[in-house]
Structure formats: structure tokens, C-alpha cells
Design a protein around this nucleic acid. Structure first.
Length: 442
RNA sequence: GUGGCCGUAGCUCAGUCCGGUUAGAGCACCUGGUUGUGGUCCAGGAAGUCGCGGGUUCAAAUCCCGUCGGUCACCCCA
């Protein structure tokens, strides 16, 4: 093939390659989330990337239909790539809930696809980590959902973060009290923009789009922007919204009490009545999570309670509560905050190769160390020692082991600590123990 | 989907407005100085279809159109 026929290597808009550094960061993030979820008893599941289009269509409104990657497969079936993990869960639950039993809590980590325009931290293929607790209306599940969010972000060491809590019923109560009940969706969409465009423009939008009077709009904004600690906020809501908000307020209070009892610092949880969420299907508690150091990137974990997940696919009623960690958005945030080490960090030990005809023996030494639980990389060819050490340096190996003819004859090995440049010589029988000791110390 | 800005070596960028000798720099990379010891230093080297395609011109990285990719805003959302 001539040079002119080389195909330009490229990836689709919004689709990305993951180099080792980014992949390690993602693995670490997912491992952390997984271990928290397991500690709460969430079970792992997976579903196909591709579903019949009818399963996915019309579930998130017109917008998500437009964002579907949809096509006809080779068998003439109308299929589409999943755009979230919630709709597949609904289908999954309708199909299998009888064998699983309720209540059922599962987590699901996998890629989803949306054919929308890209932006920083927003891609067309991205990873979600969803966890849901279905088949129970108990507020304990709402509380545990918030606890999982809290424990995960605490374990991730992302600096301070705030879980913003609301309850759709509080909003609904306020709206009906103010006579805006029939405009719920429009109103919520405007209210959701509060932090972005400010109260003046939200008021304008409410008047223009939702047909609210200026007074109604002002009262609403006042109600959703009450400040103070959580108790004060709830008290003021009751004052403004009256009985209409009583249930929602009580639910929020129950969740807050549960979180406090579990030892969650109050500074990390904030009732925020302006959190409405884009999706319409939430009916109770709503969660959004922001990194205090990087609020602009948006919510890195969102979710809420829904009355009925799977009514489209089964007659069995399945209420539930769950949330979704935006893995890629979180990774973008962590990278921006300098909290992920993108450098290579593979096996801590590099075994250099020196004497050309001893390859089998090098392989033997490497494997003996691995059997002792040590991660070892064997340099694949007897290149100049300097080059091998340079490689060890660049790849971040902690120790380099050097065994040349002299060492083979003496039955010893030289261990070099890369950070200090110091080295020591030990017998082969002591090699694993000494490496372990040195790694423990560094 | 709509609009603004951007796209030059692996990376960060200069050069583009006012077209004109072999398109530059820093970092990274490779080789040697050091035939068994990395990070520093010195010397040398390799590396660019100027995103891609078309047009204008004697001449295009530079001007025009289209397209792909990135980014920001709207929208929506993780």
C-alpha cells in the first residue's frame, strides 16, 4: 500500500479514546463507586447497548427522541442505542422483577449514547453509574440514596461537595398555592435556570412563558430562594406554602434526620427548593450534587424518586428512588482540579534484561516475584542498561532490578530505588522479601 | 439543531490581519559523549498532507466557499 492510501486515523465527534492515564483514573473512580454501592447491598446488572426503538422512544420527552442513535439492523429491526440507564432498567425490571423480588436495589455502570452537540464534559458516548432502589416507597430508601452519594464523594476525595435536596411535592404545593399548578412543567424549567440567569430574568420568563402575573412570579422566586440553614428553609416554606407543602416538607425532614443520624455533616446537605431537574418523571425527593470548588461544571450526581418506573412495560407498580453519577463529567472536573494523576503508574517494579541468553531465567525471576504478590514488568529486550533505567524513570517504576552476568554467577540481584538512586544487592532467595520491604517504605 | 471563536511537528504555540526564498521555537522523542546504571549537561538527528476538499492567483499556512474536529453560548443534560 502506498503512503497516499493511508486512512486518516480519527474518532467520531463526541467519541473519545482513553489513554492509560485517563483509563486508570476512570477505573479508580468506578472502583470507588462500586465498593460503596456494594457496601449498601446494591447488586450489579447489565443490559444490552442496543434496544428495540419502541422501548426507548418517548421516554424522556421529544428531546431525548431527537438524541437517539437509531437505525435499522441487518435483520430489518428498528433499533437504537440506549441514551440512559433508567429506561433499560424499567424494561429490565418489568421483564425480571418476578424472579428478583422486591425491594430490589441494583447498580449499573455502562456507556450510553446521545446524538447531541458536544461541550466540555459533555460527549456523545459517555459512562453512567446508576443505582436505584425499586419496589419500595419507604423514605429510608430516599435517605440511603443520599447516603450513597455522600459516601461515594467522600471516598473520592474531591474536596468539599454539597448535595442539594428538594422534593417535587414541595414545588407542586407551592405552585398550586400560588395558582400556577397547571403550568408545572414550564414553571419548573424556568426555575431550574435560577442559578444561571438570575431571578430578574426568571421572573421575566415566568411572566412570558408561563403566563404568571408579576406578583405570582415574585412570590414563587421568593419561596424557592429562601436562605438559612435547612430548618429555617423548611419553616419558611411551610409559612409560604401552607398545608399544600406539608407532605413534601415532612419527607425532606425525614431524609435530613436520617442523614444526620448517619453522621453526615450538615454542611454537605442543603435543602434547595429551586432544584427542579429537567426530567419530568421525578415525583418526590430530588438530588443534585455539586463540587464546591467547581460548581460551574454542573451536577455530578443527580437523581430522585419516581412513583412508577415501569408502567409502560408492565401492570405491576414499581416505585423507586435512585441517582446517576456522571462519570465523565466527574472525570473532567477532577482533571481540572488537578486531583487525578494522569501519569503512567503501572507495575512498581521493572526487571531489566541484561544477559541476552538468559531470557528464560529472567522470565522465571519475574514470575517468582509475581507469585509473591508483586507486580513486575520485565523489559522485553537486552537494550542498553541506561535506556532501560530511563524507561523505568519515565514510566514511574519505583524499583529497578538489575541482574547481569556477574549477578547470575553470584546468585544475587541488584535492587535500585529509582527515587534515591541507591541500590543494594541481595541473594535471589531474598529478592521478593526485600522488594516488598522497599515498596512498603516508599 | 442555531450562532461566536479556534484547528501549523507527539504537546504548547509563533507566523495568518497587509499572499511571495528550503514553515519556525520551546518541551517531548531518537543517537552519541558514558561497550553495566535513569533524572543534569553538551553535541547531533528525526519529525509537519500548515485538519480535509475545492476555488481565486504567476504564487495560498495566509484570501473565499464547503466540510470534519474542538471550544463557548442557546437548548437540554451526566
Amino acid at each position: 500500500m502506498s503512503d497516499s492510501r493511508i486512512i486518516e486515523p480519527r474518532t467520531l465527534k463526541g467519541f473519545r479514546d482513553f489513554l492509560p492515564g485517563a483509563m486508570r483514573a476512570r477505573d479508580w473512580l468506578l472502583e470507588t463507586a462500586r465498593s460503596v454501592l456494594k457496601s449498601y447491598g446494591y447488586a450489579p446488572i447489565d443490559t444490552p447497548a442496543l434496544e428495540y426503538s419502541e422501548i426507548l422512544l418517548g421516554k424522556g420527552g421529544d428531546e431525548s427522541d431527537k438524541q437517539l442513535y437509531r437505525f435499522e439492523d441487518n435483520g430489518g429491526r428498528d433499533v437504537a442505542l440506549r441514551f440512559d440507564l433508567t429506561v433499560p432498567l424499567a424494561r429490565f425490571a418489568a421483564q425480571h422483577i418476578n424472579e428478583l423480588g422486591t425491594p430490589f436495589k441494583r447498580y449499573h455502570i455502562g456507556p450510553v449514547w446521545r446524538a447531541e452537540n458536544t461541550q466540555r464534559g459533555r460527549y456523545r458516548e459517555f459512562m453512567q453509574c446508576d443505582f436505584d432502589f425499586i419496589g419500595t416507597e419507604s423514605l429510608t430508601a430516599d435517605t440511603e440514596t443520599a447516603l450513597v452519594i455522600h459516601d461515594t464523594f467522600a471516598a473520592l476525595d474531591v474536596g468539599e461537595f454539597t448535595i442539594r435536596l428538594n422534593n417535587r411535592k414541595v414545588l407542586a404545593g407551592l405552585l398550586s398555592e400560588l395558582g400556577l399548578g397547571d403550568q408545572t412543567a414550564t414553571v419548573l424549567r424556568s426555575v431550574d435556570k435560577l442559578p444561571k440567569i438570575g431571578r430578574e430574568r426568571v421572573v421575566e420568563e415566568l411572566v412570558a412563558a408561563a403566563g404568571a402575573s408579576s406578583d405570582q412570579a415574585q412570590s414563587l422566586i421568593e419561596a424557592v430562594t429562601v436562605t438559612g440553614n435547612n430548618d429555617a428553609v423548611l419553616a419558611q416554606i411551610v409559612e409560604i406554602g401552607g398545608d399544600a407543602t406539608a407532605y413534601g416538607v415532612a419527607a425532606l425532614r425525614a431524609v435530613l434526620d436520617g442523614l444526620a443520624a448517619a453522621g453526615v455533616p450538615e454542611s454537605r446537605v442543603q435543602v434547595d427548593v429551586s432544584i427542579a431537574r429537567g426530567l419530568d418523571y421525578y415525583t418526590g425527593t430530588v438530588y443534585e450534587t455539586f463540587l464546591d470548588e467547581l460548581p460551574a461544571i454542573g451536577s455530578v450526581c443527580s437523581g430522585g424518586r419516581y412513583d412508577d418506573l415501569a408502567s409502560l412495560y408492565t401492570k405491576q407498580r414499581l416505585p423507586g428512588v435512585g441517582a446517576s453519577i456522571g462519570i465523565d463529567r466527574l472525570l473532567a472536573a477532577l482533571e481540572e482540579l488537578g486531583k487525578v494523576d494522569l501519569s503512567d503508574a503501572g507495575a512498581p517494579i521493572l526487571l531489566t534484561m541484561f544477559a541476552p541468553d538468559r531470557t528464560p531465567e529472567y522470565l522465571g525471576v519475574a514470575n517468582a516475584l509475581r507469585r509473591e504478590g508483586l507486580a513486575v514488568e520485565l523489559y522485553p529486550e537486552p537494550k542498553k542498561l541506561g535506556a532501560q533505567l530511563k524507561y523505568a524513570d519515565r514510566k514511574g517504576h519505583t524499583l529497578a532490578i538489575i541482574i547481569g552476568d556477574q549477578e547470575w554467577e553470584a546468585g544475587t540481584a541488584q535492587i535500585k530505588v529509582m527515587a534515591t538512586g541507591e541500590s543494594e544487592t541481595v541473594a535471589h532467595s531474598d529478592l521478593a522479601g526485600e522488594c516488598a520491604r522497599l515498596l512498603g517504605n516508599t
